[in-house]
């Protein structure tokens, strides 16, 4: 697998050298075809990009004072601009130097982000049941890291998921193949229908009251 990925990159760079002179004339929207999406996924996970951008680059919405992160799956940036945004980000994102990740690897990430965005979008089934989801959420151990209300914990590493911070498609993608520490929930053990139930249960979790309104949190 590793050999294959390496060989693919070598081919890409050989080709890149040949066409270097005209590269700037080719629309960068096709750049994903030149990268190794599989390796890009590995790099994406290794660098921890998923922590802020989600496992498929779906982004995170802003919650309270917590800044969100932009959707980068299927990014409209050219490869050149994408590289620039990673090397010298303008927002809160930390810079990733060439000593940490090569341009070649970022090209693979770029390809992965486009391939992830091309996956069919999952629709949340209307039959999903919050009541069933509440039972499944506890019975199947989601509460262990995320708390009974999906509040999350810095000790377990379980993020806040009640209400969910990511769209249903990203939720399913992450649970099926988590990029971080979370153990995977395969369809064999947890069906798509059950996963939908859990999602709508989490959607039903109330938003937190403003901390300023709670005297015990203003001491």
């Amino acid at each position: 697998m590793r050999l294959f990925a390496s060989t693919t990159r070598e081919v890409f760079f050989t080709a890149a050298l040949i066409v270097a002179g005209i590269l700037a004339l080719i629309p960068d929207a096709n750049a994903q075809a030149r990268g190794d999406a599989q390796n890009g996924k590995k790099v994406f996970e290794k660098l921890g990009c998923f922590r802020c951008h989600g496992s498929a680059g779906e982004g995170m919405p802003q919650t309270g004072k917590l800044a969100g992160s932009p959707k980068i799956g299927g990014t409209k940036l050219s490869l050149r601009d994408f590289l620039q945004s990673v090397r010298k980000p303008t927002g809160q994102m930390p810079p990733f130097l060439t000593t940490q990740v090569s341009d070649e690897e970022l090209s693979d990430v770029y390809a992965f982000l486009h391939s992830a965005a091309s996956q069919p979008k999952l629709e949340l089934p209307s039959s999903a049941s919050s009541k069933d989801g509440e039972h499944l959420y506890t019975a199947f151990g989601c509460y262990e890291c995320h708390g009974y209300q999906g509040q999350g914990s810095v000790q377990t590493g379980g993020s806040r998921i009640g209400p969910p911070q990511i769209p249903y498609s990203g939720f399913v993608a992450y649970i099926r193949q988590p990029a971080g520490e979370m153990p995977p929930y395969t369809p064999k053990a947890l069906s798509d229908a059950q996963l939908a139930d859990i999602y709508v249960f989490l959607q039903s979790r109330p938003q937190a009251a403003p901390s300023k309104s709670i005297p015990q949190l203003n001491q």
């Binding site: 309270g64 708390g147 509040q151 806040r160 009251a209 901390s211 015990q216 949190l217």
Partner: peptide, 27 residues
């Protein structure tokens, strides 16, 4: 401020959230 906001999540939950336990003690 972010920690306070995070502590407000599941404030009224039962079983009691560990954030609330800590906040009630501190008060």
């Amino acid at each position: 401020e972010q920690a306070r906001d995070a502590a407000a999540v599941a404030w009224d939950a039962s079983p009691i959230s560990t954030a609330r336990l800590a906040a009630e003690l501190w008060a």
